[in-house]
Design a protein around this nucleic acid. Structure first.
Lengths: 165, 165
DNA sequence: TATTGTTATACTCTATAACTATA
DNA sequence: TATAGTTATAGAGTATAACAATA
């Protein structure tokens, strides 16, 4: 098991992290400016708009956020703005059923064109069709690989908490 | 100018964002667990460890963080832990010269193996050498493209601030 | 007992604006 | 006047732990 990255891997890692950071930053700016939405809020709304049936909080949590309380917080903000509704599920009284409102759909529609434009201008302007396909294949593989390999493996190595001194 | 993304682009965009989000999450976990460092702090230390001459705050700000005060804050934390030193520059009395300490280098050395291992296991396990090269080329192009194209273009479209209703 | 979800709380990161000091 | 950096402050996002209610 090789304990280091070769130069090509290092170069790729840094370029990937930096490029995506720049993209994320631009996307967050756009969503905030055009619709007052954080990226997570946009993800929640987009997921709800895409689904043909209402989703539970657990459904939404999958892949969107890493803690339940974080999702509850974000959902609370979206509900306060009238972009989603929350109601107890008829099937399972423990579950909460989340639906997007018309106002929520409108907000997504307001934000989407600018979003698409940013992604196109920043990411896809410099990639041809073949590259887009290759990149998509690689990232789907990587994503599936990471999903199936929970990071808990590398968790408890050394603890370090307060000011070191 | 096409106002939408084609299906291949959409698929690639989402896969890229999700894969990198998972990677970032795992990397942050590892850095925190192994060295009590945020990713930005690790970037600062790595940049200093890599440079053969001391850097100014402005040097560090390039590409690491998006506001000066944020960098000042992070540098303050690192200094408090004894991982870096800050001193007025002899050349330009306005500037601050930042140097990594031995303790800082040690911390980087402690964190690096686990970091590399996470990146290798999560990202490069599913990519062969050709893919690594292709991904690196694409991401370097995209990064340079984004750097040269400041996102301010899409900034002022619509304002939306407080609670909507 | 396990699961769903919320609440309370605390902490980190980031950004804005005001300010000092030097070029 | 422009630049380098800090400070104070405020806000958003996220996580942990305790809790309530249902399966």
């Amino acid at each position: 098991m090789p304990d280091a990255l070769n130069p090509a891997q290092l170069r790729t890692y840094f370029a990937l992290m930096e490029a995506v950071s720049l993209l994320q930053y631009a996307v967050r700016q756009q969503l905030q400016a055009d619709g007052g939405l954080s990226y997570v809020q946009f993800e929640i709304l987009a997921k709800l708009a895409d689904a043909d049936h209402p989703l539970t909080m657990t459904d939404l949590a999958d892949g969107v956020v890493y803690s339940r309380s974080g999702l509850t917080h974000q959902a609370g903000l979206l509900e306060k703005e009238g972009l989603i509704t929350r109601a107890p599920s008829p099937d399972d009284q423990r579950a909460t059923v989340v639906e997007i409102t018309e106002k929520g759909r409108t907000r997504v529609a307001e934000v989407l064109p600018g979003h698409v434009e940013v992604v196109r201008a920043l990411l896809f302007d410099s990639l041809d069709a073949d590259e887009v396909r290759a990149l998509g294949d690689m990232m789907e593989n990587a994503r599936d690989h990471m999903r199936s390999r929970p990071p808990r493996s590398a968790a408890p190595r050394k603890r370090r908490a307060g000011a070191g001194a």
